[in-house]
Simulated assay, not measured.
Amino acid sequence: MKRYFFLFTVLCFSLVTFAQEFNYGVTAGLNVSHPKDYRNHVGFNVGVKGEYTFSDKQDCLYLESALLLTSKGWKTDVYADESENAGTADWTCDAYYLELPLMVGYKSGITDRVRISASAGPYVACGLFGKSKVKDIPAADDIDNIFSDGMYKRFDYGVKLYVGVDYSNWQLGVSYGLSLQNPIKGGWALQDPKDRTFSLQLAYIINR
């Protein structure tokens, strides 16, 4: 799988040589992570992005990438102690990544200023910091850094899909990211909170 991602990356950067236009801007948005068998976790994404278009026409193929600080994670219930009658408490895991997607897409013009776009491609991510905490249980083994303390794998990879609308310098869209690995390692490996993240993103293209 990693070899295919590498070949795809080389191909995309080779195509950049023929690009007609490069645009760049800033982007921010809301994440909702929903790993299987876990409750929703609300986070954010913020960063910079760039686009290569292969034509100056309204309808064109394009290549885009971004560098994002993104927040993912999950919530679940745990028993307050070994007795099932003791009630439950919230167990929350927050994970912050530096994420790099590389996506190929197509833009279709509706008017001179409005275009619809759709893209897909892989992403890689590096875990920066994060915390695991059980609420209202003082004796719980909270983890201050899930990446350095052996709970989470440092690197993640997966695929993303995106659809959106461009209006002048603004872009509004939604994306879906699917991790292709279980992020948990070590003694936590029976947990499988594989990331499935829906994102709402607003971007401003500076040099258009």
Rank of each mutant, 00 (worst) to 15 (best):
T70L: 05
S71Q: 15
K72P: 06
K72T: 12
K72Y: 10
K72R: 11
G73E: 10
G73N: 06
W74Q: 09
W74D: 07
T76Q: 14
T76P: 07
D77T: 07
D77S: 14
V78E: 12
V78Y: 05
Y79M: 12
Y79K: 08
Y79L: 13
Y79G: 05
S83M: 09
S83F: 13
E84C: 09
E84V: 15
E84Y: 15
N85S: 12
N85F: 13
N85M: 06
A86Y: 02
A86V: 02
G87W: 05
G87Q: 03
A89M: 11
A89T: 09
D90K: 11
W91E: 15
W91G: 02
T92E: 14
C93H: 10
Y96T: 14
Y96D: 12
Y96W: 12
Y96G: 04
Y97L: 09
L98K: 10
L100N: 09
P101V: 04
P101Q: 12
L102Y: 05
L102D: 03
M103G: 00
M103D: 01
V104G: 15
Y106A: 08
K107Y: 04
S108W: 13
S108G: 11
G109E: 01
G109T: 08
T111Q: 00
T111V: 01
T111Y: 00
D112R: 11
D112H: 12
D112P: 04
D112T: 12
R113E: 13
R113H: 13
V114F: 08
I116K: 13
I116C: 08
S117H: 13
A118G: 15
S119F: 02
S119Y: 00
A120W: 02
G121D: 03
G121I: 01
G121W: 03
P122Y: 07
P122N: 00
P122K: 01
Y123N: 00
V124T: 05
A125N: 01
A125W: 03
L128N: 01
L128D: 04
F129K: 06
F129T: 14
F129M: 09
G130I: 12
K131L: 03
K131G: 02
K131E: 14
K131D: 04
S132P: 02
V134P: 05
V134G: 03
V134Q: 05
K135H: 10
K135P: 04
D136V: 00
D136K: 00
I137D: 00
I137S: 00
A139L: 07
A139P: 01
A140M: 04
A140P: 05
D141Y: 07
D142Q: 02
D142W: 01
D144G: 13
D144M: 07
N145F: 08
N145C: 13
N145M: 11
N145G: 14
I146H: 00
F147V: 12
S148V: 15
S148W: 04
S148M: 07
D149H: 04
D149N: 13
G150C: 11
G150L: 09
M151H: 08
M151C: 09
M151V: 10
M151N: 03
Y152W: 11
Y152Q: 10
K153F: 03
K153G: 08
R154M: 14
R154L: 15
R154A: 14
D156P: 02
Y157E: 08
Y157K: 08
Y157F: 14
Y157R: 11
